[in-house]
Nucleic acid binder design. Structure first.
Lengths: 336, 336
DNA sequence: ATGAAAGCGCTAACAC
DNA sequence: GTGTTAGCGCTTTCAT
């Protein structure tokens, strides 16, 4: 119980176990070529001393940081307000908690984006994860040459240099949602779509159109909005104003559906009686609202975990496909 | 433009600037005693070489990590699903982005809580932040002796050893909410309270009671729930079943209020006409629902920033009061 | 004000 | 299988 300044070092463990520092290092790093007896000896010393390896020293010597950066563009700072991204972060963190990697959370403000760049290139991390609202915002794409990077969301135009990414299958998610409407007998299915300048908006529209035309229905009932309840309400109003009867609605987000709900009620129509509706995201609102909303769940936690799994494999030098698409599932509730 | 393996080192900068490594180090660390000319010289070399100091080496030599851990107990993994915590995390991250500290996000699973402990004590970080749903869960409290720690949320029974914490003023938040009801003329104000085994629940009840009794009203209209919409609905049903007229309701969370909304409508009562209601949290639901919900905003982003500010000051050896209480504000909307 | 030199705690050849 | 020996890139006395 000799009082020691600071924490015990590898050298102290070596002394106590009566072996060399190299051997202790081997044990700590689970090298296969160390006698079982020696391993036991060393582990005992480690336990007695309550030894914890010093990361800085380890990184310096091994030239590995055992750290992974999670970059969140500040414009997307609401990321955390968005349950989808919050869950992605959670998935990443939980996955990494089971590895020896540490997670460095970075808020990359636009103004000093090269502070982030320097950080990533400065040898502070072994790899990086980038999540953004603007899946097109791959301003870090070219860093992919310098260190393993995995993006959340598909780049606008995926080319060879776009790097690795994990995306959600928006096309089939939307198709699933719309098919549900078809299956329950809807014959006039409208959609409140999102902006067409970003992949999710484009893909979901494709999915909706796929299902609608496959069923031999009209694919003209489209109005656009920007994922907010207000936009959803406005779009629904325009849809109703067309004068054509509508018996099914697919909204590109639960928030958009929220706005539509209000307008449908105002019009004296019932859900799902007169109009069945399906949303997208499976956010907190979906389960809470009345009637509860049938919606598409994108398994964001799994997506985050997958992203983390991929950087780690990339760091280990493994080959990983450029694109990884996560499946979506339909959550049936009362609205459709 | 000599091709160099890896990134430029301090030594290379020194060579290029024609000074010693010590001098470069001084410039990098903004030491006051270096001639302006030399500083300029060195900075030029740094810029030309695109030099970025190696963190590991720096930590090893200085015995500082320039990193702060943000610990999130896994039981609270839904933290990210909870807008309040998500915002706290955001506040922390944004604050630290402006400092030289790096943020290490840790999900501490109960099962291997000492992996976390070892990490914190292993010299990996200079300080730590702990946020938890169970503000009573201060299982890391005693680590406060070993390194600066700041908790989010007040400990069950704050004593000298409880360490530093930042909390929201739940008492006055609840008082504010209830007073609003009093001010608009409600004479029979009920509350759907949260569990009384945690500080927020206790404090908000105190605040409600304060305001209600100060107005000379009955303080018996209390029912409990666990912050979910379902519990809110059940509690509201019990409240209505009492047979006493109610014209005002204070719910301990917006989710609780969501449940109450449904029941109030079922009963054919209007909001705020028959019953005015005030929630707590100002979550996404509050603004979306109809009528929009008057609620208490706890400024979670500011709370996160404050926590970060405090650890940094603690790390710098400054004295900081054990408790820091953040103010809350009432957000007026349609429901009250 | 600047330089020389001695490590910080660990890993990684290379010997044995 | 285990020990020896160099560093990894930086900070920091201590001289000058």
């Amino acid at each position: 119980m000799t009082p020691q300044a600071g924490s015990p070092t590898l050298e102290m463990v070596a002394a106590r176990a009566g072996v060399s520092r190299a051997t202790v290092s081997r044990v700590v790093n689970a090298s296969p070529k160390v006698t079982a007896e020696v391993v036991a000896l060393v582990n005992t010393a480690i336990a007695e001393l309550n030894y914890v390896p010093n990361r800085a020293a380890r990184s310096l010597a091994s030239r590995k940081t055992q750290a992974i950066a999670l970059v969140v563009p500040e414009s997307t700072a609401k990321v955390f307000a968005d349950p989808f991204f919050a869950s992605v972060v959670q998935g990443v963190a939980i996955y990494l908690a089971d590895t020896d990697y540490t997670l460095n959370l970075l808020i990359a403000s636009e103004t000093k984006s090269d502070k982030t760049r320097r950080y990533l290139l400065g040898g502070n991390v072994d790899g990086a994860l980038v999540v953004s609202h603007h899946s097109g915002d791959h301003s870090y794409t070219h860093l992919g040459q310098a260190l393993p990077i995995v993006f959340g969301g598909r780049p606008i135009s995926p080319d060879a240099s776009a790097g690795h990414y994990v995306d959600v299958d928006n096309v089939s998610g939307a198709r699933l949602a719309t098919q549900r409407l078809v299956d329950r007998g809807c014959r006039s299915i409208a959609t409140i779509a999102g902006p067409q300048d970003m992949p999710p908006g484009v893909d979901r529209l494709v999915g909706w159109r796929d299902a609608v035309t496959a069923a031999g229905l009209d694919d003209g009932l489209v109005e656009y909005g920007d994922y907010s309840p207000d936009d959803g309400a406005a779009a629904m109003r325009r849809l109703l104003a067309r004068g054509v009867p509508i018996d099914g609605l697919f909204a590109f987000s639960d928030q958009l559906a929220a706005g539509a709900y209000a307008v449908i009620r105002e019009a004296g129509l019932s859900i799902p009686g007169d109009i069945a509706v399906v949303g997208y995201d499976d956010d907190a609102y979906a389960a809470t609202v009345s009637p509860s909303l049938t919606t598409v769940n994108q398994a964001p936690v799994e997506m985050g975990a997958k992203m983390a799994e991929i950087v780690v494999r990339l760091i280990d030098g493994e080959h990983v496909d450029q694109a990884t698409i996560m499946p979506t599932k339909l959550v049936l509730r009362e609205s459709a």
